[in-house]
Every structure is written in structure tokens, then in C-alpha cells.
Simulated scan of single mutants.
Amino acid sequence: MEPTTDRLKTPRAAGMAGIAFALLLAAAIVLMRIAVPSGSADATVDPDNRWAIQVSLEIVPFAGIFFLWFMGALRTHTGAAEDRFVATVFLGSGFVFVATLFAAAAAAGTVLSEGTPSEFGRHYAYTLLSTYAMRVAAVFVLATSTIGRMLGVFPRPLALLGTLVGLVLLVVGSGVPWSELLFPAWALIVSIHILRARRGTARTPGQDRPHPS
């Protein structure tokens, strides 16, 4: 009885953590994009928008924590059936993404602390986020979609969507503004699927009970 309960709780934890991560990361990206210009070299940060940088910096650590919870719950759900090579890429890309995300937030913090934000600080923060963090996130998406497809955890359309999102993030990188939002959008879709799949699994035992004659 206990193993079944654990199997039902793990997808729920992954789904809830994934939704929290997706919403927090999306909010942090939007706030950072609004507050810190990424365009011309002479662009300046509007003093009225400095609050957005502060809120974004407060959000990022919680987004990273929920992402680690999301990643751990997903790996526990796959269990010993996962491919070790793909699982290693899955774990490695996840950890590097969180580290790079925190580094990008720290770089953005220098923009907030400086009286006159420098072009270097602004460019460094965006390079870490859009070029490095998002490309590592692309590897995580591709590894997760591969594991989901191999184990039958993800339906074929969801696995194909993950492959497409991963390739776009990997190839496009910082070339298209706001493309970073593809990652939290994918995480949100996967989390909703996990919760819906768990709800269907939880109803199955009740449906199998024999009717009294």
C-alpha cells in the first residue's frame, strides 16, 4: 500500500513544483526585460523601474529551489528504468542551469547597486541568461523529453513539443528577444500534464473494485 501512495505523491510534487517554477521564472524574466534594457549601448535604466529589478532578484532564488524540487521529483518518478547516459545529461544540465541562473541574477544585481548602470553589467547579465542559461535549459528540455518518450511517461505530442522547444532555445539563443519564456512555458505544460495524469491514475483503483452482487 505504501509504495502505491509514494508513486502517486511523486508526480503531484513534480507537477506543483514545476508550476511554481514556471510562474516564478516567467515573472522574473518579464520584470528583468522591462527594467533592464538590452538594446543599444546608450540605453539607461529608468529609475522608476528599479523596483522591478529588486523584485526579480527576490524571485530568482525561489524559482531555482522549485526547479530543483521539480527535477528531483521527476527523476524519482522515473526510477531505475531511466537510461543512465540521458539521466546524467538530465541532472548535469539541471544543476548547471540553476547555477547560471543565479549567476545571471547576481550580475543583474550589480545593475541595481550601481548609481549609473554600466553597459558591461547589463550585457553580462543578459549574456548569462539568454546565451548560457537558456542553452543549458535547452539541453535539459531535450533530455527530459527523451526520458519521457523512452519510458512512455510523455505522450508523443508532448515529447515532440519538448524537442522543438529545446532546439529553438539551443539554436536561437539570444537572437530573438523574449525567447527565454519558452522554457517556463514548456515547464508549465509538462507540470499540468503530470498533474492530469496523476489524477487519472488516482481514479483507477476505485474503478477496478468489484461491484457487490
Rank of each mutant, 00 (worst) to 15 (best):
R12S: 09
R12K: 15
R12A: 12
R12Y: 11
A13F: 12
A13R: 11
A14S: 11
G15W: 15
A17T: 15
G18A: 10
G18N: 11
I19M: 11
I19W: 08
I19P: 07
A20M: 13
F21M: 10
F21I: 01
A22I: 09
A22D: 14
L23Q: 05
L23V: 07
L23R: 11
L24M: 14
L25V: 05
L25K: 05
L25D: 08
A26Q: 13
A26D: 05
A27L: 12
A27E: 06
A27P: 02
A28N: 03
I29L: 09
I29W: 10
V30R: 06
V30E: 05
V30D: 06
L31A: 11
M32G: 14
M32F: 14
R33D: 07
R33L: 05
R33W: 05
R33F: 14
R33E: 08
I34N: 04
I34D: 07
A35R: 11
A35V: 03
A35F: 10
V36D: 10
V36S: 08
P37F: 10
S38V: 01
S38K: 02
S38Y: 06
G39F: 00
G39L: 00
G39D: 00
G39C: 00
S40M: 14
S40P: 02
S40K: 13
S40R: 08
S40Y: 11
A41D: 12
D42N: 07
D42S: 05
D42A: 03
A43P: 01
A43C: 10
A43D: 13
T44P: 12
T44G: 07
V45Q: 07
D46S: 10
D46A: 14
D46G: 05
P47M: 06
P47G: 05
D48S: 13
D48K: 12
D48T: 04
D48G: 07
N49S: 06
N49A: 07
R50K: 15
R50A: 15
R50G: 13
W51Q: 12
W51C: 10
W51S: 14
W51T: 14
A52F: 04
Q54L: 14
V55S: 15
V55Q: 12
S56F: 15
S56W: 09
S56A: 11
S56L: 09
L57S: 06
L57V: 09
L57M: 14
L57N: 11
L57Y: 11
E58K: 12
E58T: 08
I59V: 07
V60T: 04
V60E: 06
P61T: 08
P61Y: 15
F62H: 09
F62V: 08
A63N: 07
G64D: 10
G64R: 02
I65F: 12
I65P: 04
I65E: 04
I65T: 02
F66V: 02
F67H: 02
F67T: 02
F67C: 01
L68F: 01
L68M: 03
L68D: 01
L68Y: 00
L68I: 00
W69S: 00
M71N: 03
M71S: 01
G72C: 01
G72I: 00
G72T: 00
A73S: 09
A73D: 05
A73T: 00
A73M: 11
A73P: 01
A73I: 04
A73W: 03
L74I: 00
L74F: 03
L74Y: 01
R75C: 02
T76V: 11
H77P: 01
H77Y: 04
H77G: 01
G79R: 09
G79F: 13
